[in-house]
Design a protein around this nucleic acid. Structure first.
Lengths: 134, 134
DNA sequence: CCGGATCCGCCTAGATACTG
DNA sequence: CAGTATCTAGGCGGATCCGG
């Protein structure tokens, strides 16, 4: 909340805030249960709605639709409509989605080592700091 | 590429799944509204509960308590209790939290360029693919 | 075939108040 | 000072039905 003149002028606060915002943007784009599976799935090749629906099983059409729309807004996939009867809709991963590579690589390797580390420390004291293994 | 053997080279579903899980672990650890601010704040130096409560303004004691517990479980902070009267509790960032550096760097730079990119494409068609700037 | 619309239940953040 | 206790609200994901 803005209270006007109460700025506690901590020098690096703005920078930190900018970083936090940027990181949050990135996290926001990947959040939720289905974004990753969808990105990975579509990276295997273009697919139709029901193809995706089968491959990423468990997702409902509504959610799939919503997720695809978000991925499209973020430029990760393109939605191509072919005017057949009935229409054919193809979802396709874009080159832009490749810009995620470093991010995803870092997340993956860090996530992997972290799970190992947590499993270690769960030996001496049971904790619940990660979601269950699927 | 494979020379046309009858073996379908299906990019192992297991691998993708493992990647997705690892990435999800990493995202899980950073999720929510307060994890990043807290990590950044504590990286400036050890702090007491109410200090954090003031610096990360907007957070409630309950949430702060919960978030700190999670950060502790993940090994990012240590909670040191000094038996003064009343007790003094110091939260302190650990060396392990530095292992996040690459991840956070990638997320930050990608997030930054992504917001720029989205702002661009919002020129031609208004979209709402990112949370509002704070 | 490709979704949209609607309803619903859960989870969790948040507000507020209180305690050792 | 360093947190808990209790209650509420709302967002998100899911199920199901509907429509172009």
């Amino acid at each position: 909340m803005k209270t006007g003149a109460d700025q506690e002028v901590i020098p690096s606060k703005e920078e930190c805030n900018a970083s936090v915002n940027a990181i949050r943007d990135a996290l926001y784009v990947l959040n939720g249960k289905w974004k990753l599976p969808l990105i990975f799935t579509l990276r295997e090749g273009p697919k139709r709605f029901n193809e995706i629906h089968k491959v990423v099983y468990g997702i409902t059409p509504k959610i799939l639709s919503k997720e695809l729309r978000e991925l499209e807004l973020n430029g990760f996939v393109v939605r191509k409509v072919y005017p057949t009867t009935p229409v054919t809709v193809i979802y396709e991963s874009t080159p832009y989605s490749c810009t995620l590579r470093n991010v995803l690589d870092e997340l993956r390797s860090w996530g992997f080592q972290h799970r190992e580390k947590i499993k270690q420390s769960m030996r001496q004291s049971e904790t619940k700091s990660l979601p269950a293994e699927v």
